[in-house]
Design a protein around this nucleic acid. Structure first.
Lengths: 154, 154
DNA sequence: TATTGTTATACTCTATAACTATA
DNA sequence: TATAGTTATAGAGTATAACAATA
């Protein structure tokens, strides 16, 4: 049983982020159970649907997880016949991870389930505030990172 | 090496929250090293400074961690002479965790270090946006419970 | 009988090192 | 020599179960 947010920590970002993150994982995982996929597996489905086939190495970089961790995630998706490992013609060491038709469908359904979980997570905020929160989080994460040359820190 | 946020996941809250949370922990931990305390230990110092002495059980509830996990955290603080375990006169099974003068000072310094880390974390946002983000996170975490906004559990 | 703090234990998650097959 | 995928292993981090002291 978790009591309410202590005043002393109410402005502490790592604390707030941690609480909300854990709750988000929990809500998403619970809903995705109906699909038989984990949160990470659903992220893989969404990524492949959006960017097309890619190697396990590349997938790991996109997701921010080690390539050794990718193995088990893909194993599960392959056994569920949602993803296929196809040898890359260009580099026979690598696989090109490819969605099966079932994988495409599962990915779409997963999106819906995740949206539902997020709605529940942000139940205290109205539509406008949800958009603002997502946008600010995105900016903060992208932040000083590589890529689009935004304004460097002053 | 983490690449930029994939478009497919740019609106995925658990993904954004996770990335930002991990980065926050990392930044805070690095700065708090100078004090010789971990992020969790600093949370304990801040909480005791704000709410006064409390039992390990109560502390765990406030922080959302198990009481068995509290033991090691307090062990470290006690060895560093920042916190003392004093037997509760009212209930001799329990300790009343109490800040030492060094603990009070460390807590104050820790607050400053954490603020610095948060400033770095949100480098991409201006002052107004940072306040908005913190407020929305707080509302989301406190969230849907119209419930127990009263006295903390004994 | 229930609860506080404690220990031992197990479980989850993830990364490092080493191997293979290619390049 | 370097890289993709794999395996075995180890390290955090945290929770569950059981125990002593106390309620």
């Amino acid at each position: 049983m978790t009591s309410e947010v202590p005043q002393a920590l109410s402005g502490r970002l790592s604390f707030l982020l941690g609480r909300l993150y854990m709750r988000a994982l929990d809500l998403e995982a619970r809903r995705l159970e109906a699909l038989g996929v984990t949160v990470k597996q659903q992220a893989v489905l969404a990524l492949l649907a959006d960017e097309g086939p890619m190697t396990q190495q590349h997938l790991g970089q996109r997701l921010g997880i080690d390539r050794t961790t990718v193995v088990a995630v893909v194993d599960g998706l392959e056994q569920a016949r949602l993803v296929e490992r196809r040898r890359s013609p260009a580099d026979r060491r690598a696989y090109l991870l490819t969605l099966t038709p079932d994988g495409v469908r599962a990915g779409e359904q997963g999106r819906g389930l995740v949206s539902g979980a997020e709605g529940e997570l942000l139940g205290a905020l109205d539509e406008d505030e949800r958009r603002t929160l997502t946008e600010l989080l995105g900016r903060a994460v992208r932040g000083q990172g590589p890529g689009d040359a935004g304004a460097p820190p002053r």
